[in-house]
Amino acid sequence: MDSTKKHQADGETRRDFLYLTAGAMGAVAAGTAVWPLVDSMNPAADTLALASTEVNVGSVEAGQTITVVWRGKPVFVHRRSAAEISEVRAEAWQELRDPQSDQSRVKSGHDEWLVLLGVCTHLGCIPMGSKVTDVKGDYNGWFCPCHGSHYDKSGRIRKGPAPTNLAVPPYEFISDTLIRIG
């Protein structure tokens, strides 16, 4: 009795302690119960299984772009001519919005291949410019029609609202003509 009285004088009781611990346990239990619900909305195993795509680029000619589907999104594989490469490398990249050199956006030794995720970094539209007849924008690369982002021949953002360059997906050359994306 005595000790209870002492605690009550402090404004604290055993009951407060029990409330707190019970509340904490309840919060943990609720969190544990909610997590499966939340996580069920994340990509399912079969969706994750589609994570990589192989592309044979043997038939792509210089100046041509092919579009392949990787994880439901387009990937642009563009083969560049030597002239195109030297042109794009002649520009001062340090001044660009998202400063990256062309060299850092391709695999060295495979400099003629530009592999880009064809998703505008602004809000996810697909930029035009891969087909011969497409509008290619002010920098002769890609142009996103949604809010007007212009990308250059290295897929770097030059004008418009997109904040960063077109992303380079993870990929590797299995042989000179076979690329695995993902």
């Binding site: 909305m41 994340n42 990509p43 399912a44 969706t47 994880r71 439901g72 999104k73």
Partner: peptide, 16 residues
């Protein structure tokens, strides 16, 4: 990715 239930707007997205 969580909103889409995948890596692009696809069937899981439409379903939810």
């Amino acid at each position: 990715t969580w909103l889409w239930g995948g890596f692009s707007v696809d069937n899981p997205t439409l379903n939810r």
